[in-house]
């Protein structure tokens, strides 16, 4: 009968499942670090066919959470771990070790048809605070500003909140978008929009603004002159065992190939600063 068959299937599931010993690495966390993690994992899987690496991009906070719960091996984070998360990790017997994989700048974007080409940090803050609501007030056309922010679970948001907003709260009318790609797309399709994304997400369809007169480029980020920049992290539980796949993966960014990948995606390799 039905359930007999079912129990046999269930049993065989368990039996076979327990016999599996395939190497697998789970990566979870920031959407900003996501492209690096995806490119690294694809590169790595091609070199080592026996390894299965899964990448989720659910936000830095979620990455930390998964690492603490032991549901992932590498937590991508676009900010450093908070004290609270660190304490929780230690309580759970997890010892997070940070690996700085790349540097990133947060570029403030507008639509290319927008005549504004540069703002100061204060002006950007005013826009997101809702005190400046029209491009006219900044010397632009008479258009209502559509402010686009990253979701509050992203490290990009937290870095922006810290470096630009001074931890002041954004206006309620700010729209939230779940990812860097999404934020860029909104700006690209909305002439009056302003948004911010990681350096790797700039392309020809949007116009990155000069902030305090400095253009966001690899050069200005690596020299530290661009005001909104930050390191990107991968966290592991303890330092990974030398020679293991995990170790090779989190140190890939130090190898020439890894650095080429990072540069090709649009981030700044750590060795260049």
């Amino acid at each position: 009968m039905n359930w007999k068959l079912l129990s046999i299937i269930g049993l065989s599931f368990v039996l076979i499942g327990s016999a599996v010993a395939d190497e697998r690495i789970a990566i979870d966390g920031s959407t900003t670090v996501g492209p690096i993690a995806k490119a690294f994992s694809e590169y790595y899987m091609e070199q080592n066919p026996g390894v299965n690496i899964t990448v989720s991009e659910s936000g830095s906070g979620n990455g930390a959470k998964s690492l603490i719960n032991g549901t992932c091996d590498i937590a991508d984070m676009s900010r450093f771990m908070k004290d609270k998360e660190f304490n929780a990790a230690v309580e759970a017997g997890v010892f997070p070790v940070a690996h700085v994989v790349a540097m990133d700048g947060i570029a403030v974007l507008v639509h290319p048809s927008n005549p504004i080409s540069g703002l100061s940090v204060e002006q950007v803050r005013d826009i997101y605070l809702g005190t400046v609501t029209n491009w006219k007030e900044l010397g632009g056309p008479n258009k209502k500003i559509i402010a686009i922010s990253r979701d509050t679970n992203s490290g990009t948001y937290e870095t922006f909140a810290k470096l630009v907003m001074n931890k002041q709260k954004m206006a309620a009318s700010v729209e939230y978008v779940g990812s860097n790609g999404g934020a860029r797309q909104r700006v690209q399709t909305t002439p009056a929009a302003i948004g911010y994304v990681g350096l790797g997400f700039i392309d020809h369809t949007v116009k990155p603004l000069k902030i305090n007169g400095i253009e966001p480029t690899m050069l200005t980020v690596s020299s530290g002159t661009y005001p909104i920049s930050r390191p990107l992290f991968m966290f592991t539980n303890g330092y990974p065992e030398l020679g293991g796949h995990l170790h090779a993966l989190v140190t890939l960014h130090l190898s020439p190939n890894g650095q080429e990948i990072i540069e090709a995606i649009g981030f700044v390799p750590v060795t260049s600063y």
Partner: peptide, 10 residues
């Protein structure tokens, strides 16, 4: 959208 940050550990 917000479940990502929901650090339920703490």
């Amino acid at each position: 959208g917000d479940m990502g940050e929901a650090d339920h550990v703490t």
